[in-house]
Structures are given as C-alpha cells and as structure tokens.
Design a protein around this nucleic acid. Structure first.
Length: 431
DNA sequence: TATCCACAGGAAATCAGGGTGT
DNA sequence: ACACCCTGATTTCCTGTGGATA
C-alpha cells in the first residue's frame, strides 16, 4: 500500500479521499458482481433454462404450471436462473403479467410468516404484523386477496432455501391447500434447495405437493466459472483493468470449493476492491490471493460476531480450555462445565442444560469453527472430542470484539485450576 | 460376557417476549 | 384488561450406544 495518505505516520482522511478520487478507476459497475444481479445471459445454464422455460411456458396461455423443485449446491445459479426465466417470461406475457413472489426461507421460515409475507408483498406494504394474529385468519385474508388481486392470473411462489423452513410439512400443506381453495387465481410453487435429500424427510402429502419433477443444477467446472467471470467482468470493470491470469485464478479457487460461482464473483470483487484501496491501476493475481485470505477471515469473523451470546460463550469455553489446558483433550462435558462457570459471570446469561450445549457444539461444528468426533472410552463412557479449527490469535481478536465476553479472555476456568479430570486423559492418547 | 459410564440426540413441553382484537 | 396468537430458545424426558472393565 502506498503511504501517500500518511504524513509523520498519521492518517490524513482528506488526503485519502483526494487520492481516492484522483486515483485509478477500476469498477465500472460493481453491482454486476453481486449475487442479486441478474445478467443478460447465463453461461452454461442452457439445459436448466430450457427445462424451467418448458415447465413454465404454459403460464403464457393462462394455465398454471405444475410445481417443481430445483436442486443444486450453493452457487450453481439456481436463483439467478429462476429470476432470469421470470424476466423472459414477463417479456412474452401479453395481458396478464404473472406475479412472482420470492421467499427466502432462511429469513421467512415459519408457516405464519410465509403467508404474511405473500400477503404483504402483493399489497405492497406491511399490512400483516409479524406476529399476533391466528394463522387461519391470515390464510383466509390471503385467499381473498389472491382471488381479487391476482384474478385470472398466475402467482409463482418461489421458496428459496426451502430446506431451511422450520416446519416445511405445514407450510407446504398450507400452500397446496391455498391453491385448491382459490377460484380465479392459480399458484405455482417452485422450491429451491441446496440439499439433495430435502424431500426425504417430508411427509408424503407435502412431498407430493412439490410434484415429482425436479431440476438438478450441475456444479460449474473451472472453465465454466471462467466464462461466467469473463461475462460479468466486462460489465463490472473498465477495459484492460484485469491483468492476465486474474480470472482463471478466481475460477480455479472457486472450482475447488465445489464450483461455487458466488464465491468466484466474491473473489473477483474483493480483489478489485483491494486493488482500488491500494490505488493500483490494475488488478493482479496477488490481489486475488489477498482477497482469498480476507474473505476467509471475514467469513469467520462475521459468523462468530453474529452468533447469539450463549453460542459465543460456548466458543469461549473451548477457547479457554485450549488456552490454559496445556494439551488437555477437550470433551463436551468440560465445555458444559466451563460454560456454566462463564455464564454465571456474564450479566444476562444463565447456565444452560447439557442438551442445549450439545446443540451449540453441533452448530459450531457445522460452521466449521470446531471439529467434533464421537469417541467411546469404554468404561469411561462416550463423549465428543473437540478441536478448534481456527487460529487461536484470530479467535482471540474476534472474541475480544464482543463486549460482554471480553473481560473473560484471561479467565482460567476452575476446572483447569483444579486440573479436574473425570476421564483419564491417557485413555484418549491410547487412541 | 455382562456391566455401566458419559454422553448423543429425538420429541414434546414449557417459558418469555412481542403481538392481536374486543 | 383479557383471552388468545406466534416464535425462538430452552428444558424435560427419554432411548440408544461403543467398548474398557470387572
């Protein structure tokens, strides 16, 4: 980084902004690299587009398409493809434009809220409060609204990340019942799922409501990712800004992560931002490598900072045991005890049951912050052996950013002070 | 070989907090 | 004020279990 903004080592914000404005311009349209951007064309999604277009075409003649499900890993273009087709469809729909209602089930995840969300979207304002009313009242209201407002037309309900629904059986049941009870309006349900086995633990009625048909999105390979990046880059960046190899590096890195196009775009955007920040005229592969590191770090930082306080406390317990425990092997029982100690010290938290702690451990494992292996010690019972999966100093700096927890960073748990061992550590070491 | 530990993790119940209409 | 609603977090209750030990 050039230090023209600093004189005597002091950051000068005026200089910084002046330099920034006079500096090289890199982005022409940054939005083109955002996940929400719907591009003019979608490279390598022809098959998927064809299938979806085929399924939805009948809406142009006023018939309701049958419900279907889209499967595919994150970053395989499921949402983008649906949006793309919906835009095309709108171009060809003559009189009655179909309604498209997108529901992100990671945010709107309960039966009540789904119905309320649909209602509010159609009305265009928050008519239905986030809670308070009985669900069937909303159901009836929605029924009336759909027949009145979407009369003789079709309403596409896109349930994105449908696997994250809290009560998917009930939601799907409600939505099919909705469709059956309507007079003049028809609905079409489109589910989008990251999990291939999503339908497996659904009850049969709900399962059939999504139809037998499914569209599977293939993962992108590095070449395909490269094409996607090229087409986006031409919109997002000024000409000649990207140095040789930048795109192929982004593509290669993302290909390693299950061909995640979102990741590839993030990398490219971040690399551009890093170049811009350091006032380089061009984006180089070293910017991409830095971007990779930064994204990795940001991901963990954001995740941990966004966790509920109790979860942070559980993580703190793991941290403290590994910090003071001198190679002590961390087991779930220890975490429970240390968490209880900590919870008593932090205002506004209570101790939790073992059951709850066990859930938090699972969540941390799922997020990749820790690894947990089930292990039997025979006569000494069964437990989970836990390892931190994140750099200690990074974890320390993240935890120190959480105000309520910060004072505990150097707390030596009583468990460790007394060197209380319920299970002979040698049992573990034997393997 | 039967025993028994220290948990895992499913299902259902409970609680508190934010809301409604009457 | 009252009865009732929805949600998210948590507790309670429970059954299951790998394998060293007696």
């Amino acid at each position: 980084m050039k230090n023209t903004n600093r004189s005597n080592g002091i950051f000068n914000i005026d200089e910084f902004y002046k330099n920034y404005l006079n500096g090289p311009r890199i982005f022409k349209n940054r939005d083109a690299l955002e996940p929400s951007y719907v591009p003019e064309d979608l490279p390598h999604r022809d098959e998927e587009i064809e299938q979806i277009a085929g399924k939805t075409a009948c809406s142009l003649r006023g018939d309701a398409p049958s419900n279907f499900l889209c499967y595919g890993r994150t970053g395989t273009g499921k949402t983008a493809t649906i949006r793309f087709v919906s835009q095309k469809l709108a171009e060809y729909a003559k009189e009655e434009q179909p309604w498209w209602i997108y529901i992100n089930c990671s945010i709107v995840s309960t039966p009540y809220r789904i119905l309320a969300h649909i209602y509010n979207t159609i009305v265009g304002e928050e008519k239905i409060p986030p809670t308070g009313l009985p669900k069937d009242v909303i159901f009836k209201k929605l029924l009336g609204l759909l027949d009145y407002k979407v009369e003789n037309s079709i309403c596409f309900l896109v349930l994105d990340e449908i696997d994250l629904l809290k009560d998917s059986n009930e939601v799907l049941y409600d939505l099919t019942r909705l469709n059956e009870s309507l007079d003049s309006c028809r609905t079409c349900l489109i589910g989008i799922s990251n999990k291939l086995n999503f339908k497996e633990n659904l009850d049969p009625r709900a399962m059939s409501s999504l139809g037998e048909e499914k569209i599977v999105f293939k993962v992108y390979n590095a070449n395909e990712l490269g094409d996607i990046l090229k087409s986006r880059a031409s919109v997002a960046f000024y000409d000649e800004v990207l140095k040789e190899g930048v795109i192929s590096l982004c593509a290669a890195l993302a290909a390693k992560e299950n061909g995640d196009a979102r990741k590839a775009l993030q990398l490219l955007r971040k690399a551009g931002e890093i170049a811009e920040r350091s006032q380089n005229k061009k984006v180089s592969t070293s910017h991409v490598n830095k971007a990779q590191d930064e994204l990795e770090r940001e991901k963990e930082v954001d995740y941990i900072k966004g966790m509920p306080l109790q979860a942070q406390l559980v993580l703190m317990a793991v941290y403290l045991i590994s910090k003071f425990g001198k190679n002590r092997i961390i087991v779930s029982g220890d975490i429970y005890e240390v968490h209880a100690e900590l919870a008593n010290k932090v205002p506004g938290t209570r101790t939790l049951s073992r059951r709850r702690i066990s859930d938090y451990i699972n969540e941390l494992t799922l997020a990749g912050i820790i690894t947990a292996k089930k292990r039997s010690m025979g006569y000494y019972g069964r437990t989970k052996v836990i390892h931190l999966n994140i750099d200690m100093s990074l974890l320390e700096s993240i935890l120190s950013q959480v105000k309520k927890i910060k004072p505990l960073l150097n707390y030596k748990p009583i468990l460790i002070q007394k060197n209380k061992v319920r299970i002979n550590q040698n049992v573990f070491r034997k393997l």
